[in-house]
């Protein structure tokens, strides 16, 4: 550490802005609900000295986690050979699985839309590319919240989209407050994170590789699948993680565009904190969410590491 003083800032950053808040959230998740300020117990009473600290630790338990997971192996789903976990309160479980599902579908749509866009930019005339990349990035210059609100204006029942459909004599669509609206909003917001790494991978590719593949007997389509696709895969994987991970915990898009039946963990967490005011359970949900997210992140880093090793 001392020999590499330039490593201090990132460590201090992590300790202050990640580890400390996490420790606080974790502590709250071990507490119990209380009608008090703050709304949980035990709290640290420093006037009691060491005894106070000890009293606080004695008050901690894993009750909230036990409750979140409480349930029993109900039965076997014969069709899919999966044990059905029956929860006392299935809300959180459903919120997690629904979040994972929405994140997965959003990632697939973003890939299907983003790959052709990245490909088109990478194959555009060289002088046009900075402009096209700029157009992808420009939305970041306006507030995320404003952009999502703009979608309400477009998608709502009296919104821009239905106005245009009305003019064209087409039936109106009910999109706002449905999962469709959530997908539209999510793909819109996270598409640049898909496009940029794929573009970077495609842009690095030497064009003569495709000529060589054709020269050796590939048609243009075959050359794409044998050369371009595998060489852009690191970008595809990076893009997928960059979309998937934040979408799982996304809160603004589902609460503004989604309906009452849109179940996502970020939204559930918010309601637990502010509507239910059950901070300990909410904190436990947040801690579990972190672990749900850590798994794909670790997988991603493993992949990156393997890529780097393969290149050495």
């Amino acid at each position: 550490m001392i020999r590499k003083p330039y490593l201090f800032p990132p460590y201090i950053w992590l300790i202050l802005l990640f580890l400390t808040p996490f420790a606080i959230v974790f502590k709250v998740s071990l507490s119990d609900l209380a009608i008090a300020q703050p709304p949980y117990t035990p709290t640290l009473d420093l006037t009691e000295g060491w005894a106070g600290v000890r009293a606080m630790f004695e008050g901690f338990d894993f009750e909230n986690y036990v409750w979140l997971f409480s349930g029993s192996w109900g039965s076997w789903d014969v069709a899919s050979f999966v044990p059905i976990w029956v929860f006392d309160d299935a809300l959180y479980y459903n919120a997690y699985t629904s979040s994972l599902k929405i994140a997965a579908i959003t990632t697939i749509i973003a890939l299907a839309v983003g790959y052709p866009m990245a490909y088109a930019i990478a194959r555009a005339p060289r002088h046009l590319r900075p402009l096209l990349i700029m157009l992808i990035i420009i939305p970041f210059w306006s507030s995320f919240l404003i952009r999502v609100y703009a979608w309400i204006g477009i998608l709502s029942n009296e919104g821009f989209l239905n106005m245009v459909l009305g003019w064209l004599g087409l039936p109106e669509l009910r999109i706002i407050n449905t999962n469709t609206a959530v997908y539209i909003g999510m793909v819109y917001v996270y598409l640049p994170f898909m496009i940029l790494p794929i573009y970077a991978a495609l842009d690095r590719m030497d064009g003569s590789l495709l000529e060589a593949a054709q020269d050796l007997g590939c048609s243009k389509i075959e050359a794409f699948w044998r050369i371009t696709w595998p060489l852009s895969r690191p970008g595809v994987i990076a893009g997928c993680f960059l979309v998937f991970i934040p979408v799982i915990g996304e809160f603004i898009v589902p609460s503004l565009l989604g309906g009452s039946d849109t179940l996502m963990i970020g939204k559930t967490l918010y309601e637990e904190f502010y509507n239910n005011r059950d901070w300990p359970v909410a904190s436990a949900v947040a801690v579990i969410l972190l672990f749900v997210l850590i798994i794909p992140i670790v997988l991603f880093q493993r992949h990156q590491l393997k890529q780097q090793e393969a290149q050495l």
Binding site: S208, L209, E211, A212, A213, D215, L216, S219
Partner: peptide, 16 residues
């Protein structure tokens, strides 16, 4: 190009 009985060695080698 893929139907010609000609092969090319590229200046950049273009190895995959």
């Amino acid at each position: 190009p893929n139907k010609r009985p000609v092969n090319m060695m590229f200046q950049s080698y273009a190895l995959f």
